[in-house]
Design a protein around this nucleic acid. Structure first.
Length: 313
DNA sequence: AAGACGAAAGTGGTTGA
DNA sequence: TCAACAACTTTCGTCTT
C-alpha cells in the first residue's frame, strides 16, 4: 500500500523509492499536496508541505516589491494575517516601560483598535468561520491552496449575506467541499459530513445555494479524479491505472457517465482494467475502496462492457 | 469455499406539476 | 407539497471457478 508506506523524514530525504514499482522519480503536485510516482502513478506521499511564498512574481521588480518577512498573507485568517496588534504590556520595543501622556495615547489607540476590529458582526462571523475552517481542513487533510480558495468562497458567500439564517459550520463545510471540487481533490460529500457536525441535507443545501448565488466556476465531479486514490489504496499497477483512465475517457465520449455516481464508474473501470491487464481485484475489494457496493460495481461494469464493446476472457 | 451474478424490495435525492 | 422517477443500496439465493 503506497499510501501508508512512508519512512522517516531523514530516510525520505536521503533517497526516496516508490514502494510499488521501485522507481526513484517523483512528480510533486503542489495543488493536491501529493507526490506521485512518475512511472506507476501511485501516490507516494500526500499532505506534503509547500514552502514557497503565497504570491507569484514574473519579473525581478515584482519579486522585490512583493518579498517581505513574516507569515504569509492568507484569506484563512479573519484579518488576512496582516494586522498589527498593540500589545497589552506598557513597554516599548526595547522593553522600557512607557510613561505619562504617551501611555495614555497608546491606551486610546488600543481601545479603538479593539472596537474597530473585533466588534463588527462580519469580523466576529469570520473569526468563528475561520477557526471552523482550520479544524475541518486539517481533519480532511486538504492542501493550503485549497483551504485558501475555500476561505475565498466563504468570504464571497458572507458578502452576499448567504450565511444569514444558516449555520456557519454548514457554509464553511460547503465552501471546503466546493473548493476541493475546483482543485479536483477527491473529497466526497459524505467525507465532509463525517468530519463536521452538520447533516448531509444541510450541506447539500448550502452547496447548492453557493453554486447559485456566488460567482464560482466548479467542474462536475469526475470519475477520473478518483482513480489515483482508489488505485493507490489497492496497489494497482501503472498499466492498469492507465487502462482504467482510458475506459473512463471512452465512457465519457459515449455519454454513459452522466447522472451516474463517479465512484461507481471509477470502481467499474478499475475492475475491468484489472481483468484486462491481469491485475485482478475482487468486486468486494474495489467496492470497499470506492465507497460503493458490489452491486453498483457490477451494474456499472456491465454498462461499460456493453456500451464500449469490451471483450473479456 | 470464495467470488460473481441477478432479482427484488427499500432508500434518499431530484424534478416538475 | 407531493408524486414520479432514476440511481443506488441491501439482502439473499444461485451459479461458477
Amino acid at each position: 500500500m503506497a499510501r501508508t508506506a512512508r519512512g522517516s523524514t531523514q530516510e525520505r530525504e536521503k533517497k526516496r523509492i516508490c514502494s510499488v514499482c521501485g522507481s526513484d522519480s517523483f512528480y510533486e503536485d503542489p495543488r493536491r499536496g501529493e507526490s506521485i510516482c512518475t512511472s506507476c502513478g501511485c501516490v507516494a506521499e500526500d499532505h506534503i508541505m509547500d514552502h514557497g511564498p503565497e504570491w507569484r512574481a514574473f519579473t525581478t521588480e515584482e519579486r522585490n516589491a512583493r518579498a517581505r518577512t513574516g507569515a504569509p498573507m492568507t484569506l484563512t485568517i479573519a484579518d488576512k494575517g496582516l494586522a498589527t496588534a498593540i500589545s497589552w504590556t506598557n513597554r516599548d520595543a526595547a522593553g522600557r516601560s512607557i510613561k505619562g501622556s504617551r501611555r495614555a495615547e497608546i491606551y486610546r489607540m488600543r481601545k479603538w483598535q479593539i472596537r474597530s476590529w473585533a466588534h463588527g458582526s462580519k469580523q466576529t462571523n469570520l473569526r468563528q468561520a475561520m477557526s471552523e475552517m482550520d479544524r475541518l481542513t486539517s481533519q480532511l487533510g486538504v492542501p493550503r491552496k485549497t483551504k485558501e480558495t475555500a476561505a475565498h468562497i466563504y468570504r464571497k458567500a458572507l458578502d452576499k449575506r448567504l450565511v444569514r439564517g444558516r449555520t456557519i459550520e454548514g457554509v464553511v463545510a460547503a465552501s471546503i467541499y466546493l473548493s476541493c471540487r475546483i482543485h479536483r481533490i477527491p473529497r466526497q460529500l459524505d467525507e465532509v459530513v463525517n468530519q463536521s457536525k452538520i447533516k448531509r441535507r444541510e450541506l447539500g443545501n448550502c452547496v447548492r445555494l453557493i453554486l447559485r448565488y456566488v460567482d464560482v466556476h466548479v467542474p462536475l465531479p469526475s470519475a477520473r479524479d478518483l482513480i489515483p486514490r482508489i488505485s493507490s489504496d489497492l496497489g494497482f499497477q501503472g498499466k492498469t491505472i492507465k487502462t482504467a483512465t482510458d475506459i473512463i475517457s471512452q465512457a465519457r465520449r459515449e455519454g454513459i457517465t452522466v447522472g451516474k455516481d463517479p465512484g461507481g464508474i471509477a470502481a467499474a473501470s478499475l475492475y475491468i482494467a484489472g481483468i484486462l491487464e491481469d491485475d485482478r481485484r475482487t468486486q468486494r475489494e474495489i467496492a470497499e475502496a470506492s465507497n460503493v457496493t458490489e452491486v453498483t460495481v457490477r451494474n456499472r461494469y456491465k454498462d461499460l462492457v456493453r456500451s464500449l464493446g469490451i471483450t473479456m476472457r
